[in-house]
Simulated assay, not measured.
Amino acid sequence: MKADQAELVTSYPDGAIGVTIKYGKGYEDTWVVFRGSVRQVRELICDYFGFECKDETDLSLSALVVNATNLAHGKGNVASILDARVVSETPAQASADDPWATASASKPEQPTGNASAWILGEIEKQTSIADLQKLWAANQAMFSDPAVMTAYKARGRALKNG
């Protein structure tokens, strides 16, 4: 962590710790303080920032604080630099007589149990290495699946050998 990103960690006589996460560099910027045992602070940070704690259990508290700090700084920058405002993270209940609101609030269904099925199909559709590379650049997160990366490399070889 850079010196200007270092967060204040305080130890208390009762064994509790305190973690302060700031949204910016200045004293006037928003900040939040979490106090309790390591486990309590971890749970408070996860809850406050909306992290799924089950996804964060492999992280040390220090790493979790870095992730939370990065998120806080990002939100702080968006708010101050772009003069943006945070809106509700929970979609409003759709009115029964508003089909557009209902459609916006619904989550699309996955056609198969394979979350990578779409990208695998797109890889096979590519007709040039340049298009294949563009597909990768636009969907990098999906390439963490080893099956997707294997299909990508195989398609690249097939296109190269033409």
Rank of each mutant, 00 (worst) to 15 (best):
G24S: 05
D4G: 00
Q126T: 13
A137E: 10
G18I: 07
R42E: 03
D97K: 11
C53G: 13
A63N: 03
D131V: 06
A117M: 12
L135P: 04
Y23G: 12
S106I: 10
S60T: 08
E124L: 04
G26L: 00
D14Y: 11
Q5F: 01
G50N: 10
T90V: 06
R42L: 05
A147H: 13
W118R: 12
A103P: 08
S95R: 12
A105K: 11
T30E: 06
T150K: 15
E109Y: 12
T10P: 02
W100Y: 09
H73G: 10
A3C: 00
E7W: 12
K25W: 01
Q126D: 06
W118E: 06
A138P: 03
P91H: 08
P91V: 06
G24M: 01
D83K: 15
V33I: 11
L61V: 03
N161T: 09
Q40R: 15
D47H: 10
E56I: 09
I21W: 04
I81E: 10
G26Y: 01
V41N: 06
R155V: 00
K107R: 15
S128A: 09
A16G: 15
D145N: 15
Q40Y: 06
V41W: 02
Q133N: 13
D4V: 00
R157T: 09
K107V: 13
A84L: 07
V65P: 04
Y152R: 05
R155M: 00
T10Y: 02
L44F: 04
A16Y: 14
E89H: 13
D47S: 13
K75I: 07
Y23P: 05
S80M: 04
A117P: 10
L82M: 14
A141H: 13
E124R: 14
K25I: 06
Q110L: 14
R157Y: 06
A84H: 07
A151P: 07
F51C: 08
V38E: 10
P13F: 06
K22S: 08
T30Q: 10
G36A: 09
K75A: 09
S95V: 01
Q110E: 15
D131C: 06
L120F: 03
A79T: 10
S144T: 15
I17N: 06
A101H: 05
W31Q: 14
